[in-house]
Amino acid sequence: MKRLLFATFLLFYSLVGLAQPNVEKAMIKQGLVDIQKVDPTILVELKYSTTDNFVGKDVYDDLTRAYMQPMAAEKLAKASKYLQTHHPDLRLLVYDAARPRSAQWKLWNALPDLPENERQKYVADPRKGSIHNYGCAVDLTVATKDGKPLDMGTKYDFFGELAYPSREKELLEAGKLTQKQLDNRLILRTAMREGGFSPIEFEWWHFNALSREKAKMVFRIVD
């Protein structure tokens, strides 16, 4: 009986391993962690695992979980805790986290008409690697408990000045952003800064746990 139970146990875990996507296995092997195992209250909807993205197609195939380096996942959990302490009815909703370089090429090649310097505002050159490729960046928003995103003035992956944090004051004065939309962005930005993340100039949804230079010194790119 004990042998039968042990054999069943081994079979179950071997099947679990087979069911796990290869890209997830690679991320786990490199030490990345599933952010929902660090903080189960964080919501995840990987946009590049759907067709609801600027490419219009599923870029990630069977990758549906959000992975990050442990230090970055801990920072995200800290941001989540801060958000829920100050806004109990709100949650972080992750749109993208660690990204394989193979997917980075797909995103890069989806913008062939943009000049290279303009393209790099939105998609890092795969030859250099994005901070996403190191598992140290996250794209996200703030949502209600049931997953309804707050109005941030643009959708995720909007390419244009309306998404620029650096232009928000002008956009508000010009009536292109509302005060409520700006307040919602500030809720997100404040929580992420409290967690130890840094925002960037061109995308309200993107935050870095550390610089690309430091990431390259410590971690390997996920291929």
Rank of each mutant, 00 (worst) to 15 (best):
M1K: 13
F6M: 04
L10F: 12
Y13W: 15
S14T: 14
V16P: 15
P21F: 13
A26I: 13
D34T: 11
Q36P: 15
P40F: 11
T50L: 11
V55Q: 11
G56W: 08
K57Q: 15
Y60M: 15
D62L: 12
T64E: 08
Y67I: 12
Y67F: 11
M68R: 12
Q69M: 06
E74W: 07
K75W: 09
K78M: 10
S80N: 07
Y82C: 11
L83Y: 05
Q84A: 03
H86P: 11
V94I: 10
A97P: 03
K106H: 10
L107W: 00
W108T: 01
N117Y: 09
K121G: 06
N133D: 01
T141S: 06
V142I: 05
T144A: 02
K145T: 08
L150N: 03
D151N: 09
M152I: 01
M152G: 00
K155T: 12
K155H: 10
Y156I: 06
F159Q: 07
Y164Q: 04
P165D: 01
P165L: 01
R167C: 12
Q179Y: 09
Q179N: 08
K180S: 07
K180Q: 10
K180W: 10
R185K: 02
L186F: 07
R189M: 03
F197H: 03
I200R: 04
E203N: 04
F207G: 00
S211M: 05
K214M: 11
M217P: 02
R220T: 15
I221C: 04
D223E: 15
D223N: 13
